[in-house]
């Protein structure tokens, strides 16, 4: 498997019942096994900050951190009522729209993000 990449899809249902701390723990644990996580939906912004904070606590010579990116559908042109309805659904069920990509920094060199597009650049496997 030298040079191979593992992408693991996590449906939102797999984390929705977890408390914030447990969500972050689960994602970080998977990333530390050199997997690239494709999470359905997105974390709350406080959870994203917590993921960064926890990542910093875990950094050592081998684990150098994460690359993180979120593709999220813009709702600027959506009618006010639809936005309120969506906010209510997000509050109750969590935000399942979009996709979150989390990769270990020793595998993923960079994730370039435009509003609707993501480019993922990996490190040369020989240098990992």
């Amino acid at each position: 498997m030298a040079g191979g990449l593992t992408l693991q899809f996590i449906p939102y249902g797999e984390i929705e019942h977890l408390a914030s701390q447990k969500r972050v723990d689960k994602l970080l644990r998977l990333v530390k096994t050199d997997k690239i996580i494709l999470l359905e939906g997105r974390l709350r912004s406080e959870e994203e900050a917590e993921l960064i904070r926890r990542t910093m606590e875990e950094i050592n010579d081998k684990f150098t951190g994460i690359e993180l990116s979120v593709v999220y559908p813009e709702s600027k042109n959506v009618a006010f009522f639809a936005r309120v309805k969506q906010s209510f659904i997000n509050l109750v069920l969590g935000d399942r729209r979009g996709m979150t990509i989390i990769g270990p920094a020793n595998v993923v060199r960079e994730i370039k993000q435009d509003p609707d597009k993501i480019q993922l650049f990996t490190k040369d496997a020989r240098k990992r």
């Binding site: 709350r44 912004s45 406080e46 994203e48 900050a49 960064i52 990116s69 979120v70 994730i111 370039k112």
Partner: peptide, 17 residues
């Protein structure tokens, strides 16, 4: 630099929250 980095978005999102 490219402003669409997740760090920027996370910082702003947390301030917004």
């Amino acid at each position: 630099k490219d402003p669409y980095s997740q760090v920027n978005i996370t910082i702003v999102g947390n301030l917004e929250a």
